[in-house]
Design a protein around this nucleic acid. Structure first.
Length: 233
DNA sequence: CGCACGTCAACCCT
DNA sequence: TAGGGTTGACGTGC
């Protein structure tokens, strides 16, 4: 999706043999691109491999305190990436495990499709429609602000909802319609700037869904040192 | 350094 | 079953 890039022969071959039809998703301050990245057969294979490879955090590490009470988060999480990378979310620092072969493969496919490189992935596994995630923004300060977040979905298709920050909560300042889409098996959703500063997103519960979904959000993390030297990119 | 602000999931109700 | 309001301790930033 990056316009200015140097073309290599392999890129051109890949581009003409597998042209990805992107669907643009736009609203005030929201800019996303959606495409089917993998065929059903390939997505099936990748999902099965990830189910064998990915090692999720244990329950005690994945607890959150809400209104004084501790709750287990309604999903499983894991982090992978370049050795030594740390990432903090929900108030906990996580050390990235080294890339697995399947995560390697998917990361390269995303790079091929977008012209972007990533050094980290957060894996979220929703075992069925009861598992979900509440409204949030991916606005961690260690993220490279110039790099989109690339979200790959495998397994059960799930609804995905964006809501503008000024149109949520009690007494919303403005009325802005939420943006809803279904994330299909094998799909890729690119969240470009400045989407994550103005819009929250969530994966709401869908109780009729009985099968699991695995979501991979590829990111570019800037280390503190790099950030001080140059604005980067 | 003290205070304002944002966050997270479950429960209840419609 | 979906969606919206309601519940506070704690971390972060100004």
């Amino acid at each position: 999706m990056r316009e200015k890039r140097r073309w290599r022969k392999t890129d051109i071959a890949a581009e003409f043999s597998h042209p990805l039809p992107w669907r643009k998703i736009e609203a005030e301050g929201l800019d996303c691109d959606y495409a089917l990245l993998f065929s059903k057969d390939e997505a099936d294979r990748l999902f099965k491999q990830l189910e064998e490879e990915v090692e999720y955090f244990t329950e005690e590490k994945a607890q959150v305190r809400v209104f004084g009470k501790l709750h287990s988060i309604p999903r499983k999480q894991a982090t992978y990436g370049e050795p030594g990378l740390m990432y903090s979310f929900s108030g906990v620092q996580h050390l990235a495990r080294p890339w697995t072969p399947t995560l390697d493969y998917i990361r390269d496919a995303v790079t091929e499709a977008t012209g972007r490189t990533f050094n980290f992935v957060l894996v979220n596994r929703y075992k069925d429609g009861h598992d979900h995630i509440g409204e949030h923004r991916d606005d961690e300060k260690e993220l490279d602000p110039g790099c989109p977040i690339a979200s790959v979905s495998l397994g059960a298709a799930r609804d995905f909802v964006f809501r503008h920050r000024e149109a949520r909560g009690p007494g919303p300042r403005r009325h802005i319609d939420p943006v809803k889409l279904e994330l299909a098996h094998g799909s890729l959703l690119l969240m470009n700037q400045p989407t994550n500063t103005h819009w929250y997103h969530s994966l709401p519960a869908r109780k009729r869904i009985l099968s699991p979904r695995v979501n991979l959000t590829f990111r570019r993390i800037v280390s503190q040192g790099q950030k001080e030297q140059r604005p980067s990119q």
